[in-house]
Design a protein around this nucleic acid. Structure first.
Lengths: 170, 170
DNA sequence: TAGACGTAGA
DNA sequence: TCTACGTCTA
């Protein structure tokens, strides 16, 4: 089967339900809930402007927080993670701009959460779970640990969706 | 299905035949003919020394040549491809050392060849084909276009294998 | 911890 | 052309 069948989707993706788990980013791309292999913020043109349609929160940025209703998500860029790169202020472009635009358009954003766990082979694997639809409430800038500006986005889970309950481990 | 079931294999991999085609590097890892996602040279310990068990020739290095019987393959390291990196002399380590060791052990090395083609959707995709088993005959150093030393390996296809004939396009 | 002939989308 | 919360082995 080909990766990325069809156009990017805003909102619910047919056949994918809250709580569905995946092991690889490529699976997210195949089922269509997040097309990008590495990038955390996926975006698309909607009525002429770029809006976010999905994000992956792999829990790698210290500023990120997640509870049942509200999550705080860091923008990308500025090489926060990168090794031998100089950190820079994040810019309001690409995914960051898309997330900002989604505040006014109030479009649903799919949220996928990732975490690490040890499978029965004793191997550390990354797991991803589809958390459901969120809207973006607001954004601001913070100074990161490296002294450079980082965008922060607050998202709120759209009410009425099934509660997220992790399936049995492996 | 998990990536990398079992231990690395030297020589033929059950279920994989000359001419079998793949679209993604991850598929090579899954079937077990080349475990590494990006690295061109896969190696393993055999009788205590590191030998090469498979290589992927994606045709990206100008020094590489391939005909029906003999192929010339560049070593890795030195950031030949990298963008904003300074090129360096390649070192006789990792995959380069493994390929050199395979000269004296005369162990079979699986060769996978890659190329780019346009599918019917008009999208440029990379394809890989399993070419069969080779032995490493000799190696030497050359000065690359960037003025740094590059290892070159000459491999010869083991006789008696089916001829490689590409399957029909898509 | 770092390296590697990856991938797709902007 | 370049970015990106990848993913593996050593």
């Amino acid at each position: 089967r080909e990766v990325n069948t069809g156009r990017p989707i805003l909102g619910e993706v047919p056949g994918v339900e809250v709580g569905d788990e995946f092991q690889y980013r490529v699976e997210l791309a195949i089922v269509g809930i997040h097309r990008l292999y590495q990038t955390g913020i996926d975006s698309m043109k909607h009525n002429g402007i770029s809006v976010a349609n999905s994000i992956v929160d792999a829990g790698v940025y210290s500023g990120d927080k997640h509870n049942a209703e509200v999550m705080i998500y860091s923008g990308h860029g500025g090489n926060i993670v990168g090794k031998n790169k100089q950190p820079e202020d994040q810019k309001l472009e690409r995914g960051n701009l898309a997330l900002k635009n989604s505040i006014s358009t109030m479009n649903p954003v799919r949220v996928i959460r990732g975490w690490k766990e040890t499978n029965r082979s004793g191997k550390l694997v990354t797991m991803y779970v589809y958390d459901g639809l969120y809207t973006v409430n607001r954004y601001w800038q913070e100074t990161g640990p490296h002294g450079k500006l980082v965008f922060m986005f607050e998202l709120r889970r759209i009410p009425g969706q099934p509660k997220l309950r992790q399936k049995s481990k492996i």
